[in-house]
Write a protein that binds this DNA or RNA. Structure first.
Lengths: 339, 339
DNA sequence: AATGCGTGTGAGATCGATCTCACATGGCCT
DNA sequence: AGGCCATGTGAGATCGATCTCACACGCATT
């Protein structure tokens, strides 16, 4: 029973005894079509299970109803949530979603983008790996391809973006640690190419500065954003003669790494060390004590980005919107008063 | 400087003073082309930044180098991991990945599949929502579109699949609980339409049967696979006059829900209740005590599925392969001896 | 001289849907 | 009767890449 090839408009037209043009008119309801003819065409289409070839339509119109989404890593629950929300909205708008992981490699991001562009994809949502190096993104803007940046912005790329108040969040966290009597506050951070990493670092520095605490490079560890790397970095940080008394981690994977490292080193929270992580995560309330975090409105980000994108796709041409959501310090039990 | 339209083959041909046919030959290196001509064409293509329109190529060849992936929910870390692994392999093979969430709704799955099919997508990896209702999948097979089922198989759909030993895993878990002296063993399970849910339920039943324990419907709670629903279901289950002394949960989101429910009810693990979850998850080793789980080789599943798919895409036509990975009981501290 | 082959190139068809244009009707008005 | 509009339909062009076919040239063979 299997039709080896899906039915084409030509098949429908033939079955209905009309021309392709008429069939198209009947199916897409535009122009003049006789009632009776329209009926015939509809019937024929139904009988053949005609679906239309989106590829051909896309070639003709120059636009494929697919949006591209390039994120750091779908395994990070933060990005997974965002991807999910984007997909839901895309589906509602009749679009599909192509997802690519940059793995935080600029080269990967560039080639992925090139590959998706050659598909005539209509719009992109990107979490750029690099804050500086972004000719490829500027290229999109120059050719008027809708682009929304999320989680991070990129210098010289003038387009819609959705980020959170990283600096403020980090500032609040460190400020809180200082208020609790900590002076040697460690920072476990991500690669400095990454926008969020920079901003969170800035918040850390300004909070220290405001309290008159001199920055100390020995308090800062850099690691890739994976649990494993974070474990190593934490161990290094806390193997010093005078280790930090508190630690601020810049994302949830790193927070997990820190937790594992502390356990393996026999360091107990909050007695031996205090901990605040950026980005709330499922695990944070399951540990004992629960982890104090800076939370960001994850459920808003993807939806906001998708909405911005679909506004652009439907022709909006306002000045780029730069959304920035607030972050919130959620105090739980991982910070203790000191001295 | 922005070229508003990307360069086409015609542009390249014009600049190189040759016909489109010759330009195509030079760029794709087939047929006869003069050395000098080839050079000219390459140069022209370089100067124009010619990329080729994958849409047009796809229309011509009938095949778009994109694979479609329909999963339950990317937010579930299990699926996120799989999606990630598939994307990596796809990229290596020059494919992109379209992701859709079925949200465990058959209707959603069907319409998503239809929408992707009209893109002439070359192959699909699907975690089918329903074990029975799968005319849409049979349709793919009938039209020879490569399809790989993961995590779940579907009746009457004869194609490659990658699943784990759900029944065996569940059996081992429940057997262990019985060996530890438990007789009233609760089951927190997913919708019965779902293949894994059925198999895990079967393992639960056979283990009880082998120990001569009569099945008791009051020990079984059904919930959707979200943390919130699982909380409610657990509370219901443990609000009975004679609640279970142990609980087996069929996936990691439900295990999390159970943990939250127990906490809110003041039920302590493993003293008041023992717990085993199916699917290992990041949280499991962070709780106190750590959670005993049945683990599945998550990192294998996506890769295996992708490999099977690309084998099919490169023309392999063997009999369908049905891969089934082993599951393993990882004993931690959430089960106590009873009686 | 006639045939053949190896090499190189271009014209045009094709994939499927859509859109413009031209061409039919028929009815209505002046 | 002549003209005009509203309605309905089809032929053909278009999107961009690729592939088949035909053709042309030069050199070698009979």
């Amino acid at each position: 029973m299997a039709r080896s090839k899906p039915a084409t408009l030509k098949d429908v037209a033939a079955l209905a005894n009309v021309s392709r043009a008429t069939a198209a008119r009947a199916l897409n309801s535009y122009g003049y079509v006789g009632d009776e003819t329209a009926q015939k065409v509809q019937a024929a289409a139904g009988k053949l299970g005609y679906r239309g070839n989106r590829l051909a339509q896309a070639l003709r119109s120059g636009q494929l109803p697919i949006v591209g989404c390039i994120l750091g890593d779908i395994q990070n629950p933060f990005f997974a949530r965002i991807a999910h929300d984007i997909e839901v909205l895309a589906r509602e708008c009749g679009y599909n979603l192509v997802i690519g992981s940059s793995e935080e490699e600029l080269g990967q991001e560039v080639s992925l983008l090139a590959s998706l562009r050659s598909l005539s994809i209509r719009g992109f949502i990107v979490a750029p790996t690099s804050a500086d190096n972004n000719a490829h993104l500027q290229g999109l803007i120059a050719e008027n391809v809708p682009l929304i940046l999320i989680d991070r912005v990129a210098e010289g790329v003038d387009c819609d973006s959705v980020v959170v108040d990283n600096e403020g969040g980090a500032h609040k966290a460190v400020e809180y640690l200082i208020a609790m009597g900590h002076r040697r506050i460690g920072l476990l951070q991500d690669d400095m190419r990454i926008f969020t990493s920079r901003e969170r670092m800035t918040g850390y520095r300004t909070a220290l500065g405001a309290a008159g605490i001199a920055p100390d490079e020995r308090m800062i560890a850099v690691s890739q954003s994976t649990v494993e790397h974070a474990v190593d970095a934490t161990i290094r940080l806390f193997s010093q003669k005078t280790p930090p008394t508190a630690l601020f981690t810049v994302d949830s994977l790193m927070t997990q790494g820190a937790l594992l490292a502390f356990r393996s080193m026999g360091i107990s929270i909050p007695h031996n060390v205090s901990l605040i992580g950026f980005d709330d995560f499922n695990l944070a309330t399951f540990t004992d004590p629960q982890i104090t975090v800076v939370s960001q409105p994850v459920s808003e980000i993807g939806r906001a980005a998708a909405r911005l994108l679909f506004d652009r796709l439907s022709g909006k041409t306002d000045a780029p919107q730069k959304l920035r959501f607030e972050t919130k310090l959620i105090v739980r039990g991982s910070v203790s008063r000191r001295g």
